[in-house]
Design a protein around this nucleic acid. Sequence first.
DNA 1: CATGAATGAGGCTTCATTCAT
DNA 2: TATGAATGAAGCCTCATTCAT
Lengths: 219, 219, 219, 219
Amino acid sequence: MTRPKPAKEKQRDRERTRARILMAARDVFARDGFDGAAMESVAREAGVSKGLIYHYFDNRELLFIEALEAEVTELRHRQADLELRTLDPVAAVERLTVATFDYFIENPRLISLLNAENRLEGQFIRRSKVLLTAYDTLIDALEDILKRGRAERKFRDGITPVALYLSIAGLCFHFSSNRYTLGAVFRRSFADPEETRRRRAEIVEFVLHGIAAVPGQMS
Amino acid sequence: MTRPKPAKEKQRDRERTRARILMAARDVFARDGFDGAAMESVAREAGVSKGLIYHYFDNRELLFIEALEAEVTELRHRQADLELRTLDPVAAVERLTVATFDYFIENPRLISLLNAENRLEGQFIRRSKVLLTAYDTLIDALEDILKRGRAERKFRDGITPVALYLSIAGLCFHFSSNRYTLGAVFRRSFADPEETRRRRAEIVEFVLHGIAAVPGQMS
Amino acid sequence: MTRPKPAKEKQRDRERTRARILMAARDVFARDGFDGAAMESVAREAGVSKGLIYHYFDNRELLFIEALEAEVTELRHRQADLELRTLDPVAAVERLTVATFDYFIENPRLISLLNAENRLEGQFIRRSKVLLTAYDTLIDALEDILKRGRAERKFRDGITPVALYLSIAGLCFHFSSNRYTLGAVFRRSFADPEETRRRRAEIVEFVLHGIAAVPGQMS
Amino acid sequence: MTRPKPAKEKQRDRERTRARILMAARDVFARDGFDGAAMESVAREAGVSKGLIYHYFDNRELLFIEALEAEVTELRHRQADLELRTLDPVAAVERLTVATFDYFIENPRLISLLNAENRLEGQFIRRSKVLLTAYDTLIDALEDILKRGRAERKFRDGITPVALYLSIAGLCFHFSSNRYTLGAVFRRSFADPEETRRRRAEIVEFVLHGIAAVPGQMS
DNA sequence: CATGAATGAGGCTTCATTCAT
DNA sequence: TATGAATGAAGCCTCATTCAT
C-alpha cells in the first residue's frame, strides 16, 4: 500500500507532514482556545519543530483558519452523507437532528473552534470562501424537505430552512458546548452516555413537535 | 497629610473600588476571554493600579470566578423577577423564553464568560456554591408550570423542567453566542435588531409548539 | 551627596533606572546596529530584566529614538559650548571643525546611530521634534560667522551655512565612520592617535582653504 | 529526462546563475543591511532556492564579501575610466570629484555595504586581496596629478594623495550616506535632483579651493 | 489603601544552515 | 545542479505576580 521506505527515515513527505501539523492544530486550538494554543504544543503533538509549522502555514491565524475549515468541512460531509432528499420529510429532519447531535458530541473540537471564532467576532470566517458557502447545499436540502413536509400536511407553515437549522443546531450545540456548566448547575453528568442519549431523544421530540403541523388548524 | 476618614466612609470607598474592579473584570474577561484578559487591561479600565487588584482579589482565577458569579447572578435575578408562577403556563413559558433571549442579546458578557468556563471544563463553577445552586429555584418554578400546563391539557407529557430549560436556553444562547459565524454562513446580519426580533419570534413559536399537547392524541 | 540608602537595596529609582537602560541602549545600538541590537544585550548591560525595558520604553523603536536623541543632543551641547559667536570668523570655523572631528572620534556611538537611522531611511528622526530642530541654532551661528568673515574679506562668497556645515561634518564623519575600510585599503591604522591628529590637521587646513577668500579676486 | 547539455553551455548557465545570485545579494545586503538581509530574500530576488545559494557561496559571510567586492570593483572601474592622467591637474581633480559624487548618488548600494562593513569593524575587507589593493592605482594617479599641479603652481603643498582622496570621498560619501538625516534636520529634500546638483557644485568648488595654491604666498 | 517598579517565564516568529531527494 | 523540508537557536514582546515604597 504505502511506498516502500525504511521505517526510521526522516519524513520528507510534504502532504503527510502538513496533514499531521493540521490535525495537531485542530486538537490544540480546540483544547486550548485561540489565545491559549501554543505553537509549541502544536509542534510537540505533530512531532515537528515549531519552525516547520511556519514553513507550511505562515502564521498562527492562517493555521487556525485551516483548522476551522477542516472541522466545518468534516461536519458538512457527514451531513451531506445523510441523503436527506431521499427520505420522507419527518424522517429527514429526525436523521439530521440525530446526526448533528452525535457529531457535536463526538467532535467537541468543532464546537470549541466555532466558539473561538465567535469570540474573535468572526474575523477569520469572513476570509474563507469555503466556510462562507459551506452551508448552502444543506439549506437547499432543507428547503426541499420543508416544502415536501408542508405539502404532506406534516409541517406547519412559516418555518424557513435557516430557522430550522438554527433550531436544530442550537439545541445540539448548546448541550455539547455548555456541558460542563450545565452538568454542574443541574447536577447531572452530561458526559454520561445514558444522559446523552436521553437528551438526544428529547431534542428530536422537541424539534419534531416544534415544526409539526397542528391538526385541526388551518395552515 | 490626608485626614483620616470616618470608618463608615472608608468602608464605602472600599466597596466602591472593589465593585469598579469587578465590573472592569467582567468587561475584560468577556471581551478578551480568559487567556486573553490581561490584568493590566482590567487595571486600566477600572482606573486603578495592578497591585490593587491583587489586594482585593488575590489572583486572576478568583477574579474570574467572581466575575462569572456576578454575571450569572444578574441573569437569575432577571429571571426571578418574571413572576412566572403567577402566570398561566403558556404565558409563563413565553415570558421566560423572551426574557432569556433578550438577556443573552443584551448581555453578551454572560455568554462569553460561560463559554470561557466551559472551555476550562467547568473548573471554576465547581468551586462556587452560589453558582451551583443558582438555578434551583428556576427549576422549581418550571416544575410547577409544567405541572399546571399538563393539568390544563396544554403541554404534552414527558417534558422535564431541566429539559425545558435546556431547550429554551439552548435556542437563545446559541443564536447570541454564534451570531458571527451564523451571520457569515447564512449571509444575514444578526446584529440587526429586525433580524433579532424575527428570530426571537421564531424561537418562541418553536418552543411553544415543541411542548404543546397534541390534540386528539393520547398522552 | 546621594540620599543615604543601604547599598544592596533593590533599585526603585525610576529616573536612575531609566537612565541606566538608555545608556546601555546607546552602547548596544551603536555597537550592534539597529537590527543587530538584542534587547537581551541592553538588559544585561543595564543590569535589569528585559521586561523592564518595555516598562520604560514600550518598544525597540522608541528606545532607539531616545538613544539617537540623546546622542545628537550631546553633540549639539558640545558644539553649543564653543561660543563661536565670540570668536573671529576663522578661529570659529577652526574651532568648530576641531571640535566636530574630536567628537566623532571620541563618540563613535553617534556615528553608528546616525548610520543606522540612515539605513532605515530616516524613519525615526522624522518623529522626533527635538532632533528635527537640533541644528537650528548652529546654523544661525554659522550664518553670523560667515557674514562676519565675508565682511572682513576672509571668506569667499557663495557659501551657505548649511553647505559649510555639511563640508565640515562630511570630512569628519567620513573619516571616523569609515575608519576600518579606509585603514585597510590605505594601509594605515586610523585608530592610531598620531594618524588621527594628522588627519585632523589636514581637514582643518582643507576647510579653511576651502572657504577662504581668494586674494586679488573680486568677490 | 532532460537532454544533457553540452559542457560549454552548462558552464555558461552556471555562471549566469551565480551572477544572478550575487546581484540579488548586492541588492538585499544594501537594502536590509548585513544583519537584516535574509538568505530567503536573496533566494527570492534571485529566483532560486536557498540551497543553491549555499551551493555557490558556502555561507552568508562569503556571500557578503563577494557582494562588497563587486560593489567596490565597480566603483574603481568607473574611476579608472576617467583617464585622469591625461587631463590637466585641476580638471582631473574636478572630474574625479564629480564622478565620485555621481557614483555614490547613483549607487547607494556601495555606501550601504561599506557602512555595513565598517559596522563590522572591517572584518571582511581584511580577507579580500582584491579589496585591499583596489585603490592602489588611484592613489598612484593622484600622486601624479598632485605633483603636476604643484609644479604648475596650482596646488598648494602638503597634500598627500590619500588626504586628497579622503577629502573628496568624505564630502561625497557623507552627503549620500546621510541624506535622510541631513534632509530632515536641514529641511531639504536631498533626493531632489536640483539640490543634488547644487551640492555637487559646492563640493567641487570646496575641493578645488581646498587644494588650490594661495597666490602671493610662499609655498 | 494604593502605586508601579521589577522579574521570570513563556509564547510568537524569523532565520542560517543542513540535508534528503 | 537544484529544491525545499526540516531544525535549533535566538530575538521580540507580553504578562501574572511580587514587593518596596
